[in-house]
Write a protein that binds this DNA or RNA. Structure first.
Lengths: 128, 128
DNA sequence: TCCACTATTCAAGAGTTCTTGAAATGAAAC
DNA sequence: GTTTCATTTCAAGAACTCTTGAATAGTGGA
Protein backbone atom coordinates (compact mmCIF):
# COMPACT_ATOMS: atom_id res chain seq x y z
CA UNK A 1 0.00 0.00 0.00
CA UNK A 2 1.16 3.50 -0.79
CA UNK A 3 1.31 6.31 1.74
CA UNK A 4 -1.73 8.20 0.52
CA UNK A 5 -4.29 5.35 0.62
CA UNK A 6 -2.80 4.28 3.97
CA UNK A 7 -3.41 7.78 5.26
CA UNK A 8 -6.98 7.67 3.97
CA UNK A 9 -7.53 4.30 5.67
CA UNK A 10 -6.03 5.54 8.94
CA UNK A 11 -8.24 8.64 8.86
CA UNK A 12 -11.21 6.42 8.20
CA UNK A 13 -10.42 4.32 11.27
CA UNK A 14 -9.62 7.28 13.51
CA UNK A 15 -13.21 7.75 14.59
CA UNK A 16 -15.17 5.86 17.21
CA UNK A 17 -18.31 5.35 15.13
CA UNK A 18 -16.32 4.02 12.19
CA UNK A 19 -14.22 1.74 14.37
CA UNK A 20 -17.49 0.40 15.78
CA UNK A 21 -18.79 -0.13 12.26
CA UNK A 22 -15.66 -2.07 11.36
CA UNK A 23 -15.90 -4.24 14.45
CA UNK A 24 -19.49 -4.98 13.55
CA UNK A 25 -18.76 -5.75 9.91
CA UNK A 26 -15.75 -8.00 10.44
CA UNK A 27 -17.69 -10.93 11.94
CA UNK A 28 -20.37 -10.44 9.28
CA UNK A 29 -17.79 -11.46 6.68
CA UNK A 30 -18.38 -11.25 2.94
CA UNK A 31 -22.16 -11.17 3.34
CA UNK A 32 -21.91 -7.94 5.32
CA UNK A 33 -24.78 -6.03 6.91
CA UNK A 34 -27.45 -3.66 5.64
CA UNK A 35 -26.93 0.01 6.46
CA UNK A 36 -30.06 -0.01 8.58
CA UNK A 37 -28.93 -2.99 10.66
CA UNK A 38 -25.67 -1.21 11.42
CA UNK A 39 -27.50 1.99 12.30
CA UNK A 40 -29.92 0.31 14.68
CA UNK A 41 -27.20 -1.78 16.32
CA UNK A 42 -25.09 1.30 16.96
CA UNK A 43 -28.05 3.52 17.78
CA UNK A 44 -27.07 6.08 15.17
CA UNK A 45 -29.23 7.99 12.72
CA UNK A 46 -29.43 6.82 9.11
CA UNK A 47 -27.82 9.94 7.71
CA UNK A 48 -25.01 9.81 10.23
CA UNK A 49 -24.31 6.19 9.36
CA UNK A 50 -24.48 6.95 5.68
CA UNK A 51 -21.88 9.65 6.14
CA UNK A 52 -19.49 7.32 7.96
CA UNK A 53 -20.04 4.40 5.59
CA UNK A 54 -19.33 6.69 2.64
CA UNK A 55 -16.09 7.78 4.33
CA UNK A 56 -15.06 4.17 4.85
CA UNK A 57 -15.98 3.22 1.30
CA UNK A 58 -14.02 6.19 -0.03
CA UNK A 59 -11.03 4.93 1.93
CA UNK A 60 -11.50 1.46 0.46
CA UNK A 61 -12.16 -0.22 3.80
CA UNK A 62 -15.67 -1.36 2.93
CA UNK A 63 -17.65 -2.15 -0.20
CA UNK A 64 -21.33 -1.51 -0.81
CA UNK A 65 -23.64 -3.67 -2.84
CA UNK A 66 -27.34 -3.35 -3.39
CA UNK A 67 -29.58 -6.26 -2.47
CA UNK A 68 -33.19 -5.50 -3.18
CA UNK A 69 -34.10 -2.41 -1.25
CA UNK A 70 -31.17 -2.93 1.12
CA UNK A 71 -27.67 -1.64 0.73
CA UNK A 72 -25.25 -4.18 2.18
CA UNK A 73 -21.83 -3.16 3.39
CA UNK A 74 -18.94 -5.56 3.90
CA UNK A 75 -15.31 -5.19 4.88
CA UNK A 76 -12.66 -5.18 2.17
CA UNK A 77 -10.33 -7.53 3.98
CA UNK A 78 -7.56 -7.13 1.43
CA UNK A 79 -7.49 -3.39 2.02
CA UNK A 80 -7.58 -3.80 5.77
CA UNK A 81 -4.77 -6.34 5.63
CA UNK A 82 -2.89 -4.00 3.34
CA UNK A 83 -3.12 -1.22 5.89
CA UNK A 84 -1.85 -3.43 8.70
CA UNK A 85 0.94 -4.69 6.44
CA UNK A 86 1.83 -1.09 5.60
CA UNK A 87 2.10 -0.20 9.28
CA UNK A 88 4.05 -3.32 10.18
CA UNK A 89 6.34 -3.45 7.27
CA UNK A 90 6.73 -0.29 5.25
CA UNK A 91 6.24 2.08 8.11
CA UNK A 92 7.89 0.23 10.99
CA UNK A 93 10.19 -1.73 8.71
CA UNK A 94 9.47 -4.98 10.51
CA UNK A 95 11.07 -3.65 13.68
CA UNK A 96 11.61 -6.62 16.05
CA UNK A 97 10.02 -4.89 19.03
CA UNK A 98 6.89 -4.11 17.04
CA UNK A 99 6.60 -7.66 15.73
CA UNK A 100 7.16 -9.06 19.22
CA UNK A 101 4.30 -6.91 20.47
CA UNK A 102 2.01 -8.17 17.75
CA UNK A 103 2.86 -11.78 18.64
CA UNK A 104 2.40 -10.89 22.33
CA UNK A 105 -1.04 -9.48 21.72
CA UNK A 106 -1.98 -12.54 19.71
CA UNK A 107 -0.71 -14.96 22.37
CA UNK A 108 -2.72 -13.01 24.94
CA UNK A 109 -5.77 -14.38 23.15
CA UNK A 110 -7.95 -11.28 23.09
CA UNK A 111 -9.87 -12.24 20.01
CA UNK A 112 -9.77 -15.04 17.47
CA UNK A 113 -11.29 -18.40 18.20
CA UNK A 114 -9.36 -20.01 15.35
CA UNK A 115 -6.23 -18.01 14.54
CA UNK A 116 -5.13 -17.75 10.94
CA UNK A 117 -1.99 -19.56 9.73
CA UNK A 118 0.28 -16.53 10.06
CA UNK A 119 -0.90 -16.02 13.60
CA UNK A 120 -0.47 -19.63 14.63
CA UNK A 121 3.05 -19.62 13.20
CA UNK A 122 3.89 -16.44 15.11
CA UNK A 123 2.59 -17.94 18.32
CA UNK A 124 4.57 -21.15 17.83
CA UNK A 125 7.68 -19.13 17.14
CA UNK A 126 7.22 -17.25 20.38
CA UNK A 127 6.66 -20.36 22.45
CA UNK A 128 9.65 -22.21 21.06
CA UNK B 1 -4.81 -2.37 23.86
CA UNK B 2 -8.21 -0.92 24.70
CA UNK B 3 -10.40 0.85 22.20
CA UNK B 4 -9.81 4.36 23.45
CA UNK B 5 -5.98 4.41 23.33
CA UNK B 6 -6.19 2.63 19.98
CA UNK B 7 -8.43 5.42 18.73
CA UNK B 8 -5.97 8.01 20.03
CA UNK B 9 -3.10 6.23 18.31
CA UNK B 10 -5.03 5.96 15.04
CA UNK B 11 -5.88 9.65 15.17
CA UNK B 12 -2.25 10.41 15.82
CA UNK B 13 -1.24 8.47 12.71
CA UNK B 14 -4.01 9.85 10.52
CA UNK B 15 -1.99 12.88 9.47
CA UNK B 16 0.69 13.13 6.81
CA UNK B 17 3.17 15.12 8.89
CA UNK B 18 2.90 12.70 11.79
CA UNK B 19 3.19 9.65 9.57
CA UNK B 20 6.34 11.22 8.14
CA UNK B 21 7.64 11.79 11.67
CA UNK B 22 7.03 8.16 12.52
CA UNK B 23 8.79 6.92 9.40
CA UNK B 24 11.72 9.13 10.29
CA UNK B 25 11.85 8.03 13.92
CA UNK B 26 11.53 4.29 13.34
CA UNK B 27 14.99 3.81 11.80
CA UNK B 28 16.45 6.12 14.47
CA UNK B 29 15.51 3.47 17.05
CA UNK B 30 15.81 4.02 20.79
CA UNK B 31 18.25 6.90 20.39
CA UNK B 32 15.64 8.88 18.50
CA UNK B 33 16.08 12.30 16.91
CA UNK B 34 16.11 15.86 18.21
CA UNK B 35 12.99 17.92 17.46
CA UNK B 36 15.07 20.27 15.31
CA UNK B 37 16.51 17.46 13.21
CA UNK B 38 13.01 16.21 12.48
CA UNK B 39 11.83 19.72 11.66
CA UNK B 40 14.66 20.44 9.24
CA UNK B 41 14.38 17.02 7.56
CA UNK B 42 10.67 17.51 6.98
CA UNK B 43 10.96 21.21 6.20
CA UNK B 44 8.42 22.14 8.84
CA UNK B 45 8.48 24.99 11.34
CA UNK B 46 9.53 24.33 14.93
CA UNK B 47 6.15 25.18 16.40
CA UNK B 48 4.35 23.04 13.87
CA UNK B 49 6.60 20.09 14.68
CA UNK B 50 6.18 20.67 18.38
CA UNK B 51 2.42 20.52 17.96
CA UNK B 52 2.57 17.22 16.10
CA UNK B 53 5.15 15.67 18.42
CA UNK B 54 2.98 16.61 21.40
CA UNK B 55 0.01 14.94 19.73
CA UNK B 56 2.03 11.78 19.15
CA UNK B 57 3.39 11.79 22.68
CA UNK B 58 -0.13 12.28 24.06
CA UNK B 59 -1.20 9.21 22.06
CA UNK B 60 1.75 7.27 23.48
CA UNK B 61 3.39 6.69 20.11
CA UNK B 62 6.59 8.55 20.96
CA UNK B 63 8.54 9.47 24.07
CA UNK B 64 10.50 12.65 24.71
CA UNK B 65 13.69 12.94 26.70
CA UNK B 66 15.90 15.95 27.23
CA UNK B 67 19.54 15.67 26.27
CA UNK B 68 21.41 18.88 26.98
CA UNK B 69 19.64 21.62 25.09
CA UNK B 70 18.07 19.11 22.73
CA UNK B 71 14.80 17.33 23.15
CA UNK B 72 15.08 13.85 21.66
CA UNK B 73 12.02 11.97 20.48
CA UNK B 74 11.89 8.23 19.93
CA UNK B 75 9.19 5.75 18.95
CA UNK B 76 7.46 3.75 21.67
CA UNK B 77 7.64 0.47 19.81
CA UNK B 78 5.54 -1.37 22.38
CA UNK B 79 2.68 1.06 21.83
CA UNK B 80 3.00 0.89 18.08
CA UNK B 81 3.06 -2.90 18.19
CA UNK B 82 0.07 -2.78 20.50
CA UNK B 83 -1.88 -0.73 17.98
CA UNK B 84 -1.09 -3.12 15.15
CA UNK B 85 -1.98 -6.07 17.39
CA UNK B 86 -5.27 -4.36 18.27
CA UNK B 87 -6.14 -3.93 14.60
CA UNK B 88 -5.10 -7.45 13.66
CA UNK B 89 -6.51 -9.30 16.56
CA UNK B 90 -9.12 -7.51 18.60
CA UNK B 91 -10.57 -5.52 15.77
CA UNK B 92 -10.29 -7.94 12.86
CA UNK B 93 -10.36 -11.00 15.11
CA UNK B 94 -7.45 -12.62 13.31
CA UNK B 95 -9.50 -12.88 10.12
CA UNK B 96 -7.69 -15.26 7.74
CA UNK B 97 -7.91 -12.88 4.79
CA UNK B 98 -6.40 -10.04 6.79
CA UNK B 99 -3.57 -12.21 8.09
CA UNK B 100 -2.91 -13.52 4.59
CA UNK B 101 -2.58 -9.93 3.37
CA UNK B 102 -0.14 -9.09 6.11
CA UNK B 103 1.97 -12.13 5.26
CA UNK B 104 1.69 -11.17 1.58
CA UNK B 105 2.95 -7.68 2.22
CA UNK B 106 5.80 -9.02 4.29
CA UNK B 107 6.78 -11.59 1.68
CA UNK B 108 6.79 -8.79 -0.91
CA UNK B 109 9.78 -7.48 1.00
CA UNK B 110 9.05 -3.73 1.00
CA UNK B 111 10.95 -3.06 4.17
CA UNK B 112 12.87 -5.07 6.73
CA UNK B 113 16.39 -6.21 6.06
CA UNK B 114 16.26 -8.77 8.87
CA UNK B 115 12.64 -9.76 9.59
CA UNK B 116 11.65 -10.34 13.19
CA UNK B 117 10.81 -13.87 14.42
CA UNK B 118 7.06 -13.46 14.06
CA UNK B 119 7.52 -12.28 10.50
CA UNK B 120 9.89 -15.07 9.55
CA UNK B 121 7.46 -17.59 10.97
CA UNK B 122 4.58 -16.08 9.04
CA UNK B 123 6.59 -16.20 5.85
CA UNK B 124 7.59 -19.82 6.38
CA UNK B 125 3.98 -20.71 7.06
CA UNK B 126 2.96 -19.12 3.80
CA UNK B 127 5.62 -20.91 1.78
CA UNK B 128 4.87 -24.34 3.23
C1' DT C 1 -49.91 3.78 -9.83
C1' DC C 2 -49.40 4.73 -5.21
C1' DC C 3 -47.44 3.66 -0.93
C1' DA C 4 -44.08 2.13 2.31
C1' DC C 5 -39.52 1.29 3.14
C1' DT C 6 -34.42 1.91 2.79
C1' DA C 7 -30.88 4.73 2.12
C1' DT C 8 -28.43 8.99 0.37
C1' DT C 9 -27.81 13.93 -0.27
C1' DC C 10 -27.92 18.53 1.21
C1' DA C 11 -27.30 22.71 4.00
C1' DA C 12 -26.47 24.71 8.35
C1' DG C 13 -24.11 24.90 12.46
C1' DA C 14 -21.06 23.21 16.14
C1' DG C 15 -16.85 21.43 17.21
C1' DT C 16 -12.18 20.06 16.32
C1' DT C 17 -7.67 20.18 14.15
C1' DC C 18 -3.95 22.44 11.84
C1' DT C 19 -0.90 26.35 10.66
C1' DT C 20 1.30 30.65 11.54
C1' DG C 21 4.17 33.88 13.81
C1' DA C 22 5.31 36.08 18.09
C1' DA C 23 6.44 35.54 22.88
C1' DA C 24 8.12 32.72 26.57
C1' DT C 25 10.92 29.01 28.69
C1' DG C 26 14.96 26.17 29.49
C1' DA C 27 19.76 24.93 29.05
C1' DA C 28 24.43 25.57 27.71
C1' DA C 29 28.33 28.68 26.20
C1' DC C 30 30.76 32.84 26.64
C1' DG D 1 25.16 37.38 34.15
C1' DT D 2 24.33 37.87 29.36
C1' DT D 3 23.89 35.77 25.09
C1' DT D 4 22.74 32.16 22.09
C1' DC D 5 20.42 28.20 20.71
C1' DA D 6 16.53 24.70 20.96
C1' DT D 7 12.05 24.09 21.92
C1' DT D 8 7.37 25.01 23.65
C1' DT D 9 3.35 27.83 24.43
C1' DC D 10 -0.05 30.98 23.03
C1' DA D 11 -3.61 33.31 20.30
C1' DA D 12 -5.73 33.96 15.97
C1' DG D 13 -7.55 32.37 11.95
C1' DA D 14 -8.25 28.92 8.26
C1' DA D 15 -9.62 24.44 7.13
C1' DC D 16 -11.68 20.34 8.01
C1' DT D 17 -14.95 16.93 10.28
C1' DC D 18 -19.10 15.60 12.41
C1' DT D 19 -24.06 15.90 13.57
C1' DT D 20 -28.72 17.14 12.69
C1' DG D 21 -32.99 17.23 10.35
C1' DA D 22 -35.35 17.91 6.08
C1' DA D 23 -35.58 16.80 1.27
C1' DT D 24 -34.62 13.51 -2.35
C1' DA D 25 -33.85 9.13 -4.76
C1' DG D 26 -34.21 4.37 -5.56
C1' DT D 27 -36.83 -0.37 -4.86
C1' DG D 28 -40.50 -3.56 -4.11
C1' DG D 29 -45.30 -4.67 -2.81
C1' DA D 30 -50.38 -3.76 -2.83
Amino acid sequence: MEKSPALAALSALANETRLDILRLLVPAGARGLAAGEIASTLGASASRLSFHLATMEEAGLVRARREGRYQRYSVDFAQLGGLIAYLTNDCCRGHPAVCACIAEGIAGGAGAARPAPAIRAARQDRER
